[in-house]
Design a protein around this nucleic acid. Sequence first.
RNA 1: GGACCUGUGGUGCAGCUCGGAGUGCACGCCGCCCUGUCAAGGCGGAGGUCGCGGGUUCAAAUCCCGUCAGGUCCGCCA
Length: 620
Amino acid sequence: MIAVRLRLGTYAAPILNRRRPASLATRSSTRLPNAYLSEVNMPQNVETTTLRDLLCASVNAELVGRRVSVCGWVAKRREHGEHLAFVDLRDYTGVVQCVVPGSLDVRSEYVVRVTGTVARRPDGTVNEKLATGHVELTECDVDVLSVAEPPPFQLDDRVDIDEQVRLRYRYLDLRREKMQSNLRLRAKVNSSLRRSMESQGFCEVETPLLWAPTPEGAREFVVPSRLRHGEFYVLPQSPQIAKQLLMVGGFDRYYQIARCMRDEDLRADRQFEFTQLDLEASFVTQADVLGFVTEAVLDAAEAATGVRPGPIETMTWKEALDRYGTDKPDLRIGLTLHDLSSAFATTDVKAFSAPTVKAIRVPGGATFSRARLDQLTDQAKSLGAKGLAWFRVTASGLDSPLDRFLNDDERTAVRGVDGAGEGDLVLIVADEYERACKVLGALRLAIAAPPVSEGPYRYLWVTEFPLFEGVDDDGNLVSAHHPFTMPHLDDLDLIENDPLRVRSQSYDLVLNGWELGSGSVRIHRADVQSRIFKALGISDDEAQSRFGFLLGAFRYGAPPHAGFAFGIDRLVAIFAGEENIREVIAYPKTQSGTDLMTGAPKAIGERQLRDLGLRLPPKG
RNA sequence: GGACCUGUGGUGCAGCUCGGAGUGCACGCCGCCCUGUCAAGGCGGAGGUCGCGGGUUCAAAUCCCGUCAGGUCCGCCA
């Protein structure tokens, strides 16, 4: 016979009532005893509070015989008649089973405080699947702290719930083990990054969220000024200029876990607002910055995964494009691009008459169906290629509609791609250099890319990005990074003569094909800066009006400086094994930029508009 | 701005190709039974504007058009 006492004290009067009350609201108020309110507690450990002694997962065999209080949500009740029921009590650490009378009316997600005696489970009733499965709480007093309606979806992980529903009730979704572990992993990464930066001598400085518009790069979120009608702040796309000014201000090494906002369309790896580890340092070179960031990322990786990765390899942008067809190579995939330009330099085949002919070998790809090949061809075309040439490598030669147009040398070249053998497939794109590389790079991913979190973590530094990425409609050069990026010192003479060949002192950090972040050495010399502005078609006046406060600051002694920023959302998502950064963000937006829980964005009232000096155009 | 996918009791699905009564499965929920369960079990029950609007048809969850919401991608993201 199990003795069970139920406390019918100050705030748990109705718990013996089996009948569900007509209105849950009548039971929802909880009055805590005055004792709970009157003193200051110095907790014995991080688990202990006035209401509880320990967390659910901490109930273990060493405590057998002790009377303890735990608090949490009812994960499950299993009823066995009026004398016996089991309640699985859940908090963020796990679940512990409580033995209660069957007459106790607690239901899923009720919030309760259970005071019980830790006991070993009787022989034959141990649950090895549960961390606390060797023990249970008996002789329980149960206080219902809050009643709960049945949740709109089940909080166990037996089925995948539609994300729309999860986001509408995010606060319930957050109770799930997965979200708990993802957000706690994120906290762990954040704290390891802070520790790493501190130990490297960096000083945390907060920069403004209300900043000046600098129309350049990503679209900015705009905030109207109440005190100056018609004028606006913007939310920072990054603390770029603020941190450079901190270098002028003598902070030497700055970092910040910074929220950044960009009003651009959302994706699986992009939200309006995201979090970066932002840093900048003075009297440094690129090598120093790569060292700082490497240290921070390896520290975070170690904290998150328990394993400290080896050194991070480095590759130039040119090499990345050449061999992987992208500036963010996924090194988990072995396939590389091969150049057949010389073999086809004098070809008669129209399809291959192009400055660059690139090929990739797909091992075992000869089994690809015609439909699959057509699909890949469509993809190549949608990326701007004129077409995609494919060759199945057979015992006797090549199987392809284009085979009969090739001469023997060309056939040999195709067969020789990456040591192709029988059963392989060779894909060829002929085009301008960059397009040929990028199309094949995309096909490489389409054919072979595993989920981002799968397999080994392959970190990579990509360096020597071009300074300019092309020319805009007005014939002005466009910065690849931003206009304060220092050119490669060997290429300074090219700025005026052959600008698209100018390499920059900028660098990206890549993990498993995801761009984690980028940075650069900044221009601190007025003469170089004005040459760059000139190349970009930015006049002195324009530079003054847009970046005047930065350029002005530089007149008073700017140290050589360089920096970096990388996305914590993406890093944590990969560590968490998620394909989508929404899974590591507490309250994310949907792809159309709405918040399904709060309903944001929303209209504001006339009064608020008037205060801001705004008027909306009539509808329609 | 564009392409594609999805939308069916609270949840997850099937049904849609080939139109014929809101048909089915699992979970959850409610009630009853049950003293060792832990994906508890048994019996019974409630719960639906098939996202929304229009069209075709004797008849639409099913076919067509539009629209809304969610997702993946392109553009965009210095």
